[in-house]
Amino acid sequence: MKQIQIIAFLAALTMFVCILELIRRRKLKERFALLWLIAAIILIIFSLWGRLLEILAKIMGIYYPPLVLIPIIIVIAVVLFIYFSIIVSDQSEKIKTLAQKIALLEEEIKRDKNPN
């Protein structure tokens, strides 16, 4: 194994373990962690299987194999960001519904307390 491979492997493994640990400590919910775990696994595969970069470089027509990582990383990042934007949109809708319910209930409670 080349030196860089060892470093890359350790970095990716650390990421993987950190995510698992965050789940274990209940700081991260499983459904949000899944995508991060997949990202970590992809990075581990790349660090162990050095030839993979060369194969992909050939398929994609890239002369310098390490550059293959750039589009891969961009794709992973974009997918994650979109995924989280979807979650934020969903949650803001739910927060709105909750706030409206609270406002309506508050009005009803006040009306019950002092009916005119």
């Binding site: 709105k96 706030a99 409206q100 406002a103 309506l104 508050e106 009005e107």
Partner: peptide, 25 residues
Amino acid sequence: AVVISHPFNMGIGAAVQTGFIYAIR
């Protein structure tokens, strides 16, 4: 007036919608 107060600002769309929910209830 009957007053329904949102706990925080949510924009005119949400405000009108709250009014509609009140109308149904």
